[in-house]
């Protein structure tokens, strides 16, 4: 845990800098507002200590055991972590997951932001369009998605029909190990509605006065966007970036449903959490699954820390 804490140190410092250096208009007071803060945080503290904290620590302990769910856990020290070093499927799943995170998150965020700006204001039928673009996100984790996605990327799907127009012979995109992961990335991009909504909400926080002022000064749309909208939206972009990365690393449901639970074909869509789940539940190897989970936590923690550290160079807070 100590090593983990130091991973966060950087981000915590960054946090401290942005949170702590603010000058408050009514004169700076160093007085703490502990009582009020703890009162506001009371539900969260309760939740942390009982519902999340306990089970998390339990899983940390389980990561040091051999635990098959049906019999008491048996302490084996770092054995699970040692096994992880030589587990080729685990290494493969890390590769799959990293590819997924680094390809799908930027595309999804860019799409979400672009559409949010486009759908923000100044066009007829906006709320209809918003709903249309959000609709896929509602379906993203439905049981029906496996069948629906096959209508697009299956052998008889839309994609092949389209390629057929140009005389290109298609194939089963989802069921070919070479292209299966791309279809899942597309699926994730397809559900860009979630970040889009958050961007939309964020855009509404950009004071109209600023935009008016920029127009009066004769700024072009693009200049206004880059110089005014983007900086004011940066906390929200930052939020989406951090959270989408965390989510993408833990991506599970879509691959689970589309591959029928096992990350096929031939492990090409075996996401880290999917492998972890299979070890834990299908193979009754919950000790190993817990070790994998804590390793993932460290990976995500490092990326989040980097994100927080970098944020002080580009995220602009108004407070």
């Amino acid at each position: 845990m100590a090593g983990l804490a130091s991973d966060y140190d950087m981000s915590a410092l960054g946090e401290l800098r942005t949170l702590g250096q603010k000058k408050i208009a009514g004169g700076s007071k160093e007085k703490k507002e502990n009582k009020a803060a703890y009162l506001f945080l009371l539900p969260w503290f309760l939740g942390l200590s009982v519902i999340t904290g306990g089970p998390m620590l339990a899983s940390l302990y389980l990561s040091l055991t051999k635990y098959n769910l049906l019999q008491p856990p048996e302490f084996i020290g770092l054995g699970n972590f040692a096994r992880m070093l030589t587990d080729e499927r685990l290494h493969n799943s890390l590769g799959v997951t990293f590819t997924y995170v680094f390809v799908s998150v930027p595309i999804q965020l860019a799409m979400g932001l672009a559409l949010a700006v486009l759908l923000n204001r100044g066009l007829r039928g906006l709320s209809f369009y918003r709903s249309v673009f959000y609709l896929p996100s509602l379906l993203g984790s439905s049981v029906a998605i496996a069948v629906l996605w096959k209508q697009v990327f299956g052998t008889n799907g839309l994609m092949n029909d389209f390629l057929g127009l140009f005389g290109i012979a298609g194939h089963g995109w989802i069921s070919d190990p070479a292209t299966a992961l791309s279809t899942l990335i597309t699926l994730n991009v397809w559900t860009f509605g979630a970040p889009m909504i958050i961007f939309l909400a964020g855009l509404r926080q950009v004071p109209a006065m600023y935009l008016e002022a920029a127009k009066v000064d004769g700024a072009s749309r693009w200049q206004t966007f880059v110089k005014i909208t983007l900086p004011l939206l940066s906390p929200i972009i930052f939020f989406n970036l951090v959270l989408q990365i965390i989510h993408a690393f833990q991506s599970f449901t879509q691959a689970f449903i589309i591959s029928g639970g096992n990350g096929g074909p031939a492990d090409s869509t075996l996401f880290y959490t999917l492998y972890l789940y299979n070890r834990g539940f299908a193979n009754f190897d919950m000790g190993y699954a817990s070790a994998m989970a804590w390793f993932l936590l460290v990976i995500i923690g490092v990326f989040t820390a980097i994100n927080f550290w970098a944020s002080k160079y580009w995220v602009f807070y108004d407070d």
Binding site: M56, S59, S63, F252, T273, A289, A293
Partner: peptide
């Protein structure tokens, strides 16, 4: 940190 741990290992405890 609480959202960085996959749910599958928390759910049993």
């Amino acid at each position: 940190t609480t959202i960085m741990l996959p749910i599958h290992v928390i759910i049993v405890p």
